[in-house]
Write a protein that binds this DNA or RNA. Structure first.
Lengths: 233, 233
DNA sequence: TTTTTTATTTGCGCTGGCGCAAAGAAAAAC
DNA sequence: GTTTTTCTTTGCGCCAGCGCAAATAAAAAA
């Protein structure tokens, strides 16, 4: 695979960048193909590069000492991740990035973007917008985890993914089918595969979803939204 | 109370700013005194201003529909909060800011800082450093909430506050006494006042802390750290 | 001082969700 | 095809933590 500078305009933060800048980024970057399940970087690694996901799908997660994984967010094509190093010298990644399928990311030296941001405010603003959006989502999910029941959190997680994918594909019609395992859902909502399974089974009985192996089909979007809102009880 | 431009250098982000810039900020700002329990802003309000806490203490929190409060972080003197509006037009605050005691904050028009950042990269980097630090903390707390027991989370919350205050006062000797109610701890760790009370009572029996009304004195810092690490079992 | 308010403690019962274990089902590898 | 691996389901027992209710204690107000 070969990337042209202009391809990078598909990245939100780089929309308005000049050809020279984009070429400069490419010159200080390498394409890193990563197999499913492998890591782009681990929590605690020196944040020497920031990444742009070129193809595939990945997730940001934290792994606790006892081996439990917590999903923080999913990363889709042309999204930036691991950008802490562009902001602070000798930073380390505060989470790990794992490929959910065979994926390719462009690893760009943090220093380069940092230097560019010195003179290109739109880059800083783009990155800050990413950060504030991410903070808002994290805060919301934190509150959910602290105050809501598992069923509600699973409903929200599914709807969040639906929105994310719909937004990315630009489709007006929501994709009512998701590829995600119970494991994924459990890690994203802070519960266990057993509880996810029981919850989905119950929903299937009620005609809200249809669950398959690593697949969830939404049958009653409205009903699911009610569950997410905690209405219904 | 009257603020001099140079006072603003106590704010991390503004350390390196020129006198003119600081004066400019002050000219577009007002001091807002807020009584204990009242709000600087609510979640969803238009983010027209960003704030610098001049005196007192505040917290960022979310309040869910059913009235439950979740504490996101505490804000100490000379810290910046509510800065989303400086990054994006027509942004709204993703959380609310509540005074924990009688407090005064400088409310600066978001637009001003935004304009300054166009030409002063160090401001952007300062703000981004705040954001990345906050993101790292949120991610960590999210994982804790998803994977750890209540006892461990309470221990961590207490230690976090100790570190925060020690860092702020610049004291080498940790302050082993905290002013915080069970309510605060419950909201910060996603549990209930009952469980906090039971946990502290148990710790008191074991000689780890001494609990009073809106007060926690740490007797055995090492023991508390072991609880936070999940060692001990 | 007394009264009122606010914070904390604790007994008690209950339940949401955990997690083992074992079986079933779908996919992948051979 | 068969075997192996991976994912899902479900019965079962259990317990961490919830939350009411009532008592107690400490502070604040009168």
């Amino acid at each position: 695979m070969e990337l042209k500078p202009s391809d990078l305009r598909r990245v939100n933060v780089l929309e308005q960048s000049s050809d020279e800048d984009l070429a400069n980024l490419l010159n200080n970057a390498v394409l890193r193909p990563i197999e499913e399940g492998e890591f782009f970087f681990l929590q605690g690694d020196p944040a020497t590069h920031f990444y742009i996901l070129v193809s595939g799908k990945a997730k940001l997660c934290q792994i606790s000492k006892n081996g439990q994984t917590t999903n923080l967010r999913t990363i889709n094509e042309w999204q930036v991740f691991g950008a802490v190093g562009t902001v602070r010298e000798r930073a380390v990644y505060p989470a790990c990035a794992q490929a959910l399928e065979h994926s390719v990311a462009l690893a760009v030296e943090s220093r380069i973007l940092h230097e560019m941001m010195e003179t290109r405010p739109h880059l800083s603003f783009g990155l800050m917008q990413l950060m504030t959006g991410y903070i808002a989502e994290l805060q919301e999910r934190y509150r959910e985890l602290a105050t809501e029941r598992v069923e509600q959190r699973i409903a929200r997680a599914i709807l969040r993914l639906v929105r994310q994918i719909g937004q990315q594909s630009g489709d007006a019609a929501s994709p009512l089918e998701l590829n995600l395992s119970h494991q994924d859902l459990a890690e994203a909502t802070g519960t266990t595969i057993y509880t996810v399974s029981r919850t989905l089974s119950e929903w299937e009985r009620r005609g809200i979803v249809k669950a398959g192996r690593e697949r969830v089909v939404i049958r009653d979007l409205h009903g699911l939204m009610e569950l997410a809102e905690g209405t219904g009880q």
